[in-house]
Design a protein around this nucleic acid. Structure first.
Length: 226
DNA sequence: CCTATGATCCGCT
DNA sequence: GCGGATCATAGGG
């Protein structure tokens, strides 16, 4: 008798998604552990997905670089104050959308910005959405780029991340020595807080640190000062 | 390879 | 009015 084959890859994606409890922890921990997880977006055009290789933590009202610092709870920052495990999608520089996973419990406006993913699924769709990308690494190596490539936009603001259209599922696990911690990119306040994490060996990170020569393709470059 | 600059809107002061 | 959790392009080395 043939064994009744349990369809291996057919488990429900909903049950695979990282649960809200994953996000209801210190934001630094969530940012670190999201490296390797897979971000999925389903739209009428198709499904795209990428492995998260770069994140940043934003730590609430007392983090000067966090959107909740200063203004506190406003219409814009409302999702930041919402439940752990929902999306916070914001508009920046009049052009781009950026995606965050909200962390910690209600009332604690913290989140993890996803800054880069490695394209895994729906490459054709990503290329169509990002005609300016010369190479596949240009598809998703930046917070605005990955939102464009995956099709993430304002309609995803505030949605849960445990079911389509937006989902984050477990993926690769990295040892600590495969991860680099560095200051955040593009912030003018609290610019030296080391709240960025990325996969050292990944070629899909937005900005690599100088003088960090490990792995193939790493540019061990140091800014010349003479 | 690198640095500089314009684009283009929203939310808050 | 201004600055922003950015990106694409132009130009120089």
């Amino acid at each position: 008798m043939t064994r009744n084959a349990a369809p291996p890859a057919r488990r429900s994606r909903v049950s695979e998604a990282l649960p809200p409890s994953f996000f209801d922890r210190d934001t630094e921990i969530v940012a670190r552990e999201l490296l390797g997880a897979v971000l999925w977006c389903r739209t009428p055009e198709g499904i795209t997905a990428g492995r998260i290789v770069e994140t940043e933590a934003y730590l609430g009202e007392h983090d000067p670089a966090c959107h909740a610092a200063g203004p506190g709870l406003t219409e814009r920052t409302r999702p930041l104050y919402g439940a752990p495990g929902i999306a916070y999608v914001y508009f920046i520089y009049g052009v781009h959308w950026c995606f965050n996973a909200v962390t910690r419990d209600h009332g604690q406006p913290s989140a993890v910005l996803v800054r880069a993913v490695e394209p895994l699924e729906g490459l054709r769709l990503m290329r169509a959405r990002r005609p300016a990308a010369k190479t596949d690494r240009d598809l998703t190596n930046g917070p605005g780029k990955l939102c464009a490539a995956l099709g993430i936009g304002p309609r995803h603001n505030g949605v849960p991340l445990q079911a389509p259209p937006l989902m984050i599922t477990p993926g690769t696990t990295y040892a600590d020595d495969a991860i680099v911690t560095a200051p955040r990119i593009g912030v003018s306040k609290a610019a030296d807080w080391p709240l960025r994490w990325y996969v050292a060996e990944s070629g899909f990170v937005s900005v690599r640190d100088r003088a960090r020569g490990q792995g193939p393709g790493a540019r061990g470059r140091v800014k010349g000062r003479s």
